[in-house]
Structure formats: structure tokens, C-alpha cells
Simulated scan of single mutants.
Amino acid sequence: MITPTSCGHKNPFYAPSFRKSPSVARRRAEGRTTKEIMRWLKRYITRQLYRTLTAAHPVPATP
């Protein structure tokens, strides 16, 4: 996974490592624009973050 600290760029979306990633290349081959790829990436990150947070803090069942 690409993080802001791992890519060495202040904005990871414009870092060379992001542009060369296999998932971006796959989306480019599908004919997606940069804007669409950014939207996909943000949604992916949001889904992963939500799953991580809900797994770490489960809501107790009410009687």
C-alpha cells in the first residue's frame, strides 16, 4: 500500500510510485481518466479505513 511517507512526495496521488502502480495501470488500460482513478482510490481507502475502525471498535449488542 502506498502511504504519504513511503512515496517520498508531499501528495501521494502525484508521486511517481502511485502513477506506476499496477492498479493504476489496470485502470488506465480500462480507459479511466486520472480523476476517475483518484475517485476509485479514495473510495478504496475509505472502505479499508471503515472496516479497520469497525473491527477495532465493535458496537455492543443491546438487550
Rank of each mutant, 00 (worst) to 15 (best):
P22E: 14
Y50M: 12
M38E: 14
P12Y: 13
H9W: 15
T52I: 09
A25M: 15
A56E: 15
K42F: 00
P58G: 02
K42I: 07
I37S: 01
I45E: 07
P4V: 06
H9Q: 14
A61L: 09
Q48L: 05
P63F: 09
A15N: 01
A29M: 08
A55E: 05
P22R: 07
K20I: 07
T3M: 08
C7G: 10
W40Y: 12
T3V: 04
A55D: 00
K10W: 15
G8I: 11
K35N: 10
R19A: 10
P22A: 13
S21T: 10
H57I: 07
A25N: 09
K42H: 02
H57K: 10
R27G: 03
F18C: 08
K42E: 08
R19I: 08
G8W: 04
T34A: 06
G31I: 07
F18N: 01
F13T: 03
P63D: 13
G31H: 14
A55P: 00
A15F: 03
Y44D: 08
T5Q: 07
G8Y: 05
K10F: 14
P4I: 05
R27A: 14
K42A: 09
K35P: 05
A15W: 04
P58E: 06
A55R: 12
W40Q: 07
P22W: 04
S21F: 02
P58I: 02
T52P: 00
P4N: 01
R27V: 10
S6F: 06
C7N: 12
S6Y: 08
T34Q: 07
V24S: 01
F13V: 07
R19M: 11
A25R: 15
K10C: 15
L49P: 00
Y50Q: 00
G8T: 11
L41D: 03
N11P: 03
R39M: 04
R19V: 06
E30F: 08
R39V: 04
L53H: 02
R27Y: 13
R39N: 07
R28F: 09
S6T: 15
E36Q: 14
E36V: 01
Y14D: 15
R27M: 15
K10I: 08
S21A: 13
S21G: 06
T46H: 08
G31L: 02
P16N: 13
A61I: 09
F18S: 09
F13H: 08
T46V: 02
Y44K: 13
W40C: 11
R28P: 01
R26P: 04
I45W: 03
K10H: 13
P12W: 14
S23G: 00
T33I: 10
A55C: 04
R43P: 00
K10V: 12
Y50K: 09
I45T: 11
L41I: 02
A56T: 12
P60V: 06
M38V: 13
Y14H: 11
P16S: 07
Y14I: 14
L53Y: 13
S23P: 01
Y50C: 12
P4F: 14
C7P: 12
R19G: 01
R51M: 00
R32H: 10
T52F: 13
S23K: 07
K20L: 06
K20G: 03
G8V: 05
T33H: 05
K20P: 01
A15Q: 04
I2W: 11
A15T: 10
A55I: 04
L53G: 01
